Simulated scan of single mutants.
Amino acid sequence: MSAQRPADGPARDGHLHAWAELLRAPAAFTVPGDVLAGTAAAGTRPTGRTALAAGASLCLYEAGMALNDWADREEDATARPHRPLPSGRVRPGAALAAAGLLSAAGLALAACAGRRALAVAGPLAATVWAYDLGLKHTPAGPAAMAAARSLDLLLGAAAGPGAVRRAIVPAAFLGSHTLAVSLVSRRETEGGSSTAPLTALAAAGALTTVLAGRPTAHPAPDASTGAPTPATPADKAARAVRAALAASYAATFARPLAHAALNPSPELTQRAVGAGVRATIALQSGLMARAGAPGTGVLTAALAPLAAHLARKVSTT
């Protein structure tokens, strides 16, 4: 038997790295929190159906990443020649096929999670494809991206027996954050505008206030006196978790936005976009804590260091 050529290992690693770039591997850590936040907002605990919904969410998200680069391959040949498709490291046909297969897998997993989950996953998949193939470069682009994230959170609520309507407000909060990041990302290759970073900074401040505020489920007043129930040690701990997650969200997103507002260069604008993507995890975690699931929020927040570590090797944007 002939020995394996030394070049095989590096070549294989390079191919895997190209696909990790195409699929924005660090951003994948921001996906499970959508479903978990929706589950918490609906007032239910994670179950096997939650896991299926999370798998569907991840498949549809990565389908959007692959389709995004396929749709932008000619533009990237000029603006981002290092990307996997224009550099020739991934074939356009392979990227399009991956988008189709991942979309089909996402819908199949959603169907396994139940009819309500599939009823949300269908519009989510349609939004992803509409954004990448037509809406991205129109004024409706950022709103479509925000709608996709909001639907992703609702997917988590729909996978369980809880009331989906309870997740509408948290979905709007997540959509607002996504809208802010999307507006900043529209100038990430050329920079030159402080308006979007300043607008996003204002949105981040408002969302930080929401996360640090009172939970959506308030303790019942004392039945005999009608007075508010005294805070228990668990209540105080939950309040501390909400404050910590709110601070984490602000610290992750606000500083890069301030830098991009003061100096809207392409480099600093791209850093702000990457920070906004990673800050999604802290926002999801804060929404979970606000909905009465601080433990799940803390566990989800642990994904942020993993995303940051991988982002040093693979670009988030």
Rank of each mutant, 00 (worst) to 15 (best):
L287V: 09
A42F: 07
A18L: 06
V277W: 04
A202D: 11
P92T: 11
S176E: 08
R5Q: 14
R149N: 05
A110M: 01
P294N: 08
T39V: 15
G9R: 12
T78H: 13
L101I: 14
S182V: 09
T44D: 14
P123Q: 14
K236E: 15
A293Q: 13
V298C: 13
T50Y: 02
R5K: 13
A217L: 12
R149P: 07
A258Y: 00
A95I: 02
G276K: 08
S150H: 00
G297H: 03
Y61E: 13
L198A: 13
A254P: 00
D76T: 12
A77Y: 03
A147M: 03
A126S: 05
P233T: 13
A244H: 02
D8C: 07
A282F: 04
L153K: 04
L155N: 12
G100E: 07
G286K: 02
K313Y: 05
V128Y: 00
A246S: 07
S193V: 05
E21C: 13
A111V: 09
A223P: 14
G292W: 01
C112T: 05
A98S: 11
P92H: 08
A54I: 01
L36G: 02
S87W: 02
P81F: 04
A18F: 01
P123T: 14
L201A: 15
A247H: 04
G276H: 10
A25F: 05
G205N: 08
S224H: 12
A140E: 06
A63P: 08
A157Y: 04
A247V: 03
V314P: 02
V90K: 05
G160A: 03
A126M: 05
A144D: 11
A240C: 04
A304C: 07
Y249A: 00
S182F: 02
V35H: 06
K236N: 14
S315K: 10
S176M: 10
G292D: 10
A147I: 00
D34F: 09
T178W: 01
S224A: 14
A204K: 06
R45S: 14
G55Q: 04
R80Q: 09
V35Q: 07
A302Q: 10
V164S: 05
A51H: 01
R312V: 06
T296P: 04
A40K: 08
S103R: 07
K313P: 01
D76E: 12
A37T: 10
A146C: 08
A18G: 11
S315L: 08
S103C: 12
A167F: 06
G295D: 09
L107K: 03
S248W: 00
G9T: 13
H17I: 11
Q284N: 14
A258W: 01
Q270T: 15
P86N: 09
L153V: 11
Y249Q: 00
V128N: 01
P10A: 09
D235W: 02
T252M: 13
E75Y: 08
P233N: 15
S87Q: 04
L174Q: 09
T229A: 13
R255V: 10
A234P: 01
R45P: 06
D76I: 10
G191Q: 12
L153I: 05
A104T: 07
A111W: 09
T50C: 09
L310D: 03
V314D: 02
P123I: 15
L154Y: 00
Q270W: 02
R73C: 15
A42Q: 12
A146M: 04
R116Y: 02
H17D: 15
T30N: 03
R45H: 11
